[in-house]
Design a protein around this nucleic acid. Sequence first.
DNA 1: CGATGTTTACATGGTA
DNA 2: TACCATGTAAACATCG
Length: 306
Amino acid sequence: MPRPGRNTYSDQKPPYSYISLTAMAIQSCPEKMLPLSEIYKFIMDRFPYYRENTQRWQNSLRHNLSFNDCFIKIPRRPDQPGKGSFWALHPNCGDMFENGSFLRRRKRFKVGGAPGADPLVASKPQDAAHYLQQQQAKLRLSALHAAAAAHLPQMPAGYNLSAPASSFKHPFAIENIIAREYKMPGGLPAFPAPGYPLHNQLAPTWPHVYGAGVMDTCDYPAAYGVPFKSLCHGAQTMPAIPVPIKPTPTPVPALPALPAHIPAFLANSPQSVSPTSPQAAAGHGSPAAPADAPPSAGLPSAVTVH
DNA sequence: CGATGTTTACATGGTA
DNA sequence: TACCATGTAAACATCG
């Protein structure tokens, strides 16, 4: 079997809109925010289709980031120089894909909609910013938890999603979407969802997603201990993609309790939770990728919304 | 100068 | 069929 690589067998367009793809990327990192370059990288790593015509789709993606209120821009801290801001999901946009389709939302997420509008209407940007700030604080702890677990020593601690940042789970969280599609090679940590025989079922159906060789660049430790049901938001349980019928997901064992001894150093050490350290993508993945000194997805002290 | 971000315009396809 | 979400192109501004 050829190593999944460029132009081998899966150049089909993924059944996700740019909004979905971007949301996946953002959700894939523990900080729940990524710079544009990392979003690009995430998509290119996982969807070979997007390794070509980069000018085209990246322009579209940028357009989506600016155009859709579900994405909010988070400025870098002064001590974390770099180009561009971080992008995050608006905390209230979790219902965007409540209809289960990741290609087309039932309704566009809009900030500050008409009063009394449907619950999809976002909260004030200030609220979103506050929410995100809380997220960052929680992430410090979860990142530490991941480090303590040390299941994947080669993995930057920050990439371990074993400790969800909050109780809120976007329906298009990376755990929700990609986990179902990745074809897990034998040597890699098999998705620990009994009753979720993903690989053989999905591989032929969704060969556009690469699992081997690239998944370890960012997020896939999500496979560890993420209770499936907890990832579903409201009535949303499965994306409306033509995946084979699967048995009811069996909840995986809950997370081990967070260690009581949380060193305080993490609270002031954004770098220690960096999801984008060079090591993260080193080895394989996308060597040719710009790898523009990823800004370590720092935790901004102030969150502003445009 | 290139990457990033914003905005406008138009085409396409899905849905009510 | 109108409306809306999405995709694409393009012009332009800003920033490191």
